[in-house]
C-alpha cells in the first residue's frame, strides 16, 4: 500500500514535470507570435497596443517576397532531390544485406552529427576552391549534405518494415516490375516517403548555419532574421518569425490530416 501511494506521487510529479517541459518548449514560440501583434517599434511587456500592421507591411514588402522566394526555392529543390536519392539510400540502408552495409550506415549518418557551422564554412572553402560562385544554388547543395542523411534515416524506418516477399508474391501473380513498383512498393513505402519529404522541406526552410555561409548574395528568411536580430532590429522580425511558425504548423497539421485520411482510406478500401 505504502509503495503504491508513493508510486502515485512519483507518477503525478512526472506528469507535471513533462507538462512544464512542454510549456518550456513552446513558450518562446508563443512569445514570438505575441510580439508580432504589438504596435510599438521596440518590444515591451505587458503589451499596451495590439496591431496587425506589421503583417500588412510584410505582405506588401518586395524584399520579404524575395526572401520567401529564395527560401522556398531552396526547400523545394532540396525536398525533390533528397526524396529521390534517399529512396535508394534507404533501400541500401535497410533492405539489402550487402558487404559494406554496416560501414555505409555509419558513414552516411556522420553529417547529421557534425557541427553545422563548421560544415558550412568547409563548404564555403570547397566552393571557392572549385571556383563556384555561391548563391542559393550552392545552398541547395549544402542543405542536401545535412538533410539527405536525415531523410534516408526516416525512410529507412519504413523500409525496415517492408517485406520483400510482397514484391515476389505480386511478381508471381503476374505483375511486371513496373506494376510491382506501382502497386506494391511505392504504396507501402509512401508514408515514409511523405514524412521524409515533410522533414526535408521544413529542415531546409528553417536552416540557418549552412545557409549563412553558402547562399552568397542571396538571403533566406532565417539568415535575414539573424542579421536583424544581431543588428538593426525591426518589428518585422517577430512578424516573419510568426509567419514561419504558422507555415510550418500548417504543413505539419495538413500532412497529419492527409496521412490519417489515407490510413482510413486504406482501412476501408
Amino acid at each position: 500500500m505504502q509503495s503504491s501511494r508513493q508510486g502515485k506521487v512519483v507518477r503525478a510529479l512526472i506528469v507535471v514535470w513533462t507538462g512544464a517541459i512542454l510549456i518550456f518548449l513552446y513558450l518562446p514560440m508563443l512569445s514570438v507570435v505575441m510580439a508580432s501583434f504589438t504596435k510599438q517599434r521596440y518590444f515591451q511587456f505587458p503589451v499596451k497596443m495590439w496591431d496587425t500592421r506589421w503583417y500588412e507591411k510584410a505582405f506588401e514588402s518586395l524584399s520579404v517576397r524575395d526572401l520567401f522566394w529564395t527560401s522556398f526555392s531552396i526547400a523545394t529543390l532540396v525536398t525533390v532531390i533528397s526524396v529521390v536519392m534517399a529512396f535508394f539510400g534507404a533501400l541500401a540502408f535497410a533492405r539489402y544485406d550487402w558487404k559494406g552495409r554496416k560501414l555505409y550506415q555509419r558513414l552516411i549518418l556522420l553529417p547529421i552529427f557534425f557541427p553545422q557551422a563548421v560544415l558550412g564554412l568547409a563548404l564555403l572553402l570547397w566552393f571557392s576552391s572549385l571556383g563556384v560562385t555561391t548563391s542559393w544554388h550552392t545552398a541547395v547543395f549544402s542543405h542536401l549534405i545535412w538533410i539527405l542523411p536525415i531523410v534516408t534515416l526516416i525512410m529507412s524506418i519504413q523500409v525496415y518494415s517492408f517485406d520483400p516477399v510482397w514484391e515476389e508474391a505480386a511478381y508471381d501473380l503476374g505483375a511486371s516490375r513496373l506494376q510491382v513498383l506501382r502497386e506494391i512498393t511505392l504504396p507501402i513505402l509512401s508514408p515514409g516517403i511523405v514524412s521524409g519529404a515533410i522533414f526535408a522541406f521544413l529542415l531546409s526552410w528553417g536552416n540557418f548555419p549552412l545557409s549563412l555561409f553558402t547562399t552568397g548574395a542571396d538571403q533566406t528568411i532565417p539568415e535575414w532574421l539573424y542579421s536583424k536580430m544581431v543588428s538593426g532590429y525591426t518589428p518585422m522580425v517577430p512578424t516573419l518569425g510568426s509567419l514561419t511558425i504558422g507555415g510550418a504548423a500548417g504543413i505539419v497539421i495538413l500532412s497529419f490530416v492527409i496521412l490519417n485520411f489515407y490510413r482510413k482510406l486504406r482501412g476501408r478500401r
Binding site: 513558450l27 518562446p28 514560440m29 508563443l30 512569445s31 514570438v32 505575441m34 510580439a35 518590444f43 511587456f45 522533414f199 521544413l202 529542415l203 526552410w205 528553417g206 536552416n207 540557418f208 528568411i221 532565417p222 532574421l225 539573424y226 536580430m229 522580425v237 517577430p238 518569425g241 514561419t244 511558425i245 510550418a248 505539419v252
Partner: peptide, 13 residues
Amino acid sequence: LISENIRLFGWVL
C-alpha cells in the same frame, strides 16, 4: 522543424 533562430529569438523576448 522551426528555425533555431526564431525559437532563440523567443527567448530574447
